[in-house]
Design a protein around this nucleic acid. Structure first.
Length: 466
RNA sequence: GGCGGCGUAGCCAAGUGGCCAAGGCGGAGGUCUGCAAAACCUCUAUUCAGCGGUUCGAAUCCGCUCGCCGCCUCCA
């Protein structure tokens, strides 16, 4: 079965077929590194992480590029405010981004290019656009001339006249058309700059993605992704720059994720309603966040709420218990998947093939989980149920990992000796039916931040969440 | 104002023309258990914002109304 993707360009679901059979090339707009990333960035990055994982699962070779935009007004402003070079500031937040993404189980991209390391490519592209008559120079600035590219507005569905009527475009008399956008900006005092044929300056916002995508994926490639807030102007401008230059289709499928909102408003720096990934991870489990994010289709908005993440954590607990229980039974199985599980993968793939319908795919996993729990409980007396259980959990883990779940190794212990001793003492107390002492010990263990549950196979000790 | 989208059970969320409207959380009852917790089982929307239309048949298509959001300005 082939994958269907919703293409913003055509506003419809299309059958996905890569330009090169068997090889998917994806470019996703990363972040502008001027501050810590928040859960909105996390969602976007995670969504494309899952898409990328799914293509690999389907057997495609994937080249996945996610850039860092490390030259920008906000970076410069902040760096100047802090009195550090812009490069130092952006490098700091690139590292922070990588740490944050690792903490929520997002895999690194195959290529993670930085804009400032691709200035020559950008300059060359701008030169070609000038030479071809798509761009013009004014006082050391270079602008893209929108009228020369009739398809401008197609991606975002903008009518060019209405764009003008909107009139929130800055008025700059030097531009031939107020809607023209900057490819190159001449440097001002206190700004980093690079040499160019038009004098020292820095690249405009959109040009870096055109240059880097082409460098790593070719003039024409398969998927370009990003948040839906990038559709206009960013992606619109990328298309104009790249296609004006090459005369070829830039990206063939444009995928956009919905925003994370907070109390129904878009989470963004300017509204001041952001929660950083860092702050988030202190309070919640990474997989719970993933379940929370993937529980909504990637194109729809997600309204962030701590209590909903906690709901996801409870749901996740059901899955992880199954995984732990299966590990306790040992992993040796006959490999052959019991027939009862045959439909699970097909249903999972059908959901994911349909524009990455992760909520539906998760539904399949929970259906599986229910069947597995039944088998587990019968496993004590029923060998076939037991075998089905172990094999089924292995399938659950396999499919869960396609969604990026279950990446962490099973808890290696890490239990303080004090807790360990109390647990053992309590076990002995229970053995001699000293319930008073046992309950005292349980309270003590809880005060240390752990909880004990008694199961037929002994006490189950876990770190207390919340 | 223009463009795009959303409104499904207490909460979250799939489903977009035809079996009983997925799944999760919560809730109720039950099993298990020294207790507790967890787990497991069963139940939990005659109904899909409202109104009208198309159709043998609509949550799903069309129209209108109401409410909400995103983009049009830096933004994942």
């Amino acid at each position: 079965m082939s994958v269907k993707v919703y293409n913003t360009l055509t506003r419809s679901k299309e059958e996905f077929a890569p330009l090169t059979p068997g090889h998917v090339r994806i470019y996703v707009c990363g972040v502008t590194v001027y501050d810590l990333s928040h859960v909105g960035h996390a969602r976007s990055t995670m969504v494309f992480d899952v898409i990328q994982r799914y293509f690999r699962f389907k057997g495609y070779r994937v080249t996945f590029v996610r850039n860092f935009t490390d030259v920008d007004d906000r970076i410069i402003r902040r760096a100047n405010a802090e009195g550090v070079p812009a490069s130092e500031l952006s490098e700091r937040y690139i590292q922070a981004f990588r740490e944050d993404m690792a903490s929520i189980g997002v895999a690194p991209a195959d290529v993670e290019p930085k804009a400032t390391l691709h200035i020559p490519e950008m300059v060359a592209l701008i030169e070609r656009l000038v030479a071809k008559g798509f761009a013009y120079t004014v006082d050391g600035d270079v602008y893209f001339e929108i009228r020369r590219f009739p398809a401008y507005g197609r991606l975002s569905g903008k009518n060019l006249d209405e764009l003008l009527a909107g009139a929130r475009v800055e008025v700059d008399e030097r531009k031939r058309d107020p809607r023209d956008f900057a490819l190159w900006k001449s440097s001002k005092p206190g700004e980093p700059d690079w040499p160019s044929p038009w004098g020292p300056g820095r690249p405009g916002w959109h040009i870096e993605c055109s240059a880097m995508a082409t460098k790593y994926l070719g003039e024409s490639f398969d998927i370009h992704g990003g948040g839906e807030d990038l559709i206009f102007p960013h992606h619109e401008c990328e298309i104009a720059q790249s296609e004006a230059d090459t005369g070829r289709t830039f990206a063939r499928y444009w995928l956009h994720n919905g925003m994370v909102t907070f109390r129904a408003e878009k989470m963004s720096k300017s509204l001041g309603n952001v929660l950083t990934i860092r702050a988030f991870v202190k309070r919640h489990d990474a997989d719970a966040f993933r379940l929370f994010v993937l529980g909504t289709h990637y194109r729809h908005p997600v309204d962030f709420a701590e209590e909903r993440v906690r709901d996801s954590a409870r749901a996740l607990e059901r899955l992880t218990r199954l995984v732990h229980d299966a590990r306790a039974l040992g992993s040796g199985t006959s490999g052959a998947l019991p027939e009862a599980l045959g439909g699970v993968r097909a249903r999972f793939e059908a959901a994911m093939d349909d524009d990455f319908n992760t909520p539906q795919a998760l539904g399949v996993l929970f259906d599986l989980a229910r069947a597995l729990a039944e088998d587990r409980d019968r496993g004590a007396t029923d060998a076939r149920a037991r075998e089905r259980f172990v094999a089924g959990v292995s399938e659950l883990v396999t499919l869960g990992q396609v969604l990026g779940l279950f990446q962490r190794a099973p808890d290696p212990g890490g239990m303080p000796g004090a807790v360990l001793r109390l647990v053992e003492e309590r076990r002995q107390a229970r053995a001699r039916r000293d319930w008073t002492r046992a309950d005292q010990l349980r309270d003590e263990i809880q005060r240390l931040g752990w909880s004990v549950e008694d199961t037929p196979s002994g006490p189950r000790v876990t770190r207390k969440s919340e």
